[in-house]
Design a protein around this nucleic acid. Structure first.
Lengths: 145, 145
DNA sequence: TTGACTTTGTTGCATATGCAATAAATATTT
DNA sequence: AAATATTTATTGCATATGCAACAAAGTCAA
């Protein structure tokens, strides 16, 4: 059945998955850059800090699907912008304690509604198909690999 | 209901979509780099040339979800590697005619079964959930926007 | 304690990327 | 026809990325 001559990129699942994700991400990134002046890596760090308590670079790396160098650089930019602080963890001086500043908290408070609204838009476009999409993503993402 | 304090990145649809797509793409890219020495942009150009007839950079850009500069650079690398040729389109001398060489055709013939196999693996992992995933992707991707 | 090994975060480096600017060809307007 | 505008592909530039190398701190074993 799988005739290689008939191969069509537009029905190729890995390609399609990557293409949607790219478009969604680009739109999301543009919005965040314009409204808040931050990138997606920075957004992820902020949101993770908002969720968890004291957090190290390693923690962010593990939970947010980013290389540690990417996390490190995002954190440095956020620190320079005054949204987070970096402190040394006294019980293990290799670890950083990343924390939101009051400015960072305020920024997250403005960010989250926009994020949630964006998600709502997506879900509205999907209608009843959301569930199937989420189930498929879960199967690929949360699998033991 | 959407309480911003309860926001959880791991249930945030745009994030999850991007995370799966990233993992799938990285695995795919690694495989293609190791086995064939080509990148995903190059892969896309090759496959598109295999599908269509004579093709310009603009055609690839329109159909393959890539910036024209990315297409241009991928095409240059493929030309240097001997997989495609660039000729001037005599009916409109602004356009290129990109064509697979015999080596390019041979490469594509080896590439496609691997791609199809990769897709099969994905589908096997998804089981009956494939359809829902594909429907969701279609709703987001093929929409009038 | 000493020495070997591991973990954590940062940085250097090579490559990739998007965007704007450009040159060449064509199309359009006057 | 001449002047202007548009389209196509490439390239320069600034930024982003992943990976490997590294320094500092900690762990473990003898």
């Amino acid at each position: 059945m799988t005739d290689a001559n008939a191969f069509d990129l537009n029905t190729f699942l890995p390609y399609r998955l990557n293409a949607v994700a790219g478009r969604i991400s680009r739109a999301f990134a543009e919005r965040y850059r314009e409204e808040f002046g931050i990138s997606i890596p920075e957004w992820r760090v902020l949101v993770h800090l908002h969720q968890g308590g004291d957090v190290s670079v390693r923690d962010v790396e593990a939970r947010v699907d980013m290389e540690k160098s990417k996390v490190s650089r995002a954190a440095s930019r956020l620190e320079a912008a005054g949204y987070i602080t970096k402190a040394v963890n006294d019980s293990d001086r290799r670890l950083l304690l990343l924390r939101l500043t009051p400015e960072g908290e305020a920024l997250v408070a403005r960010l989250l509604p926009v994020a949630i609204g964006y998600q709502e838009e997506m879900k509205a476009r999907l209608g009843p198909l959301v569930e199937g999409l989420e189930a498929g993503i879960a199967a690929l993402l949360d699998d033991p690999k």
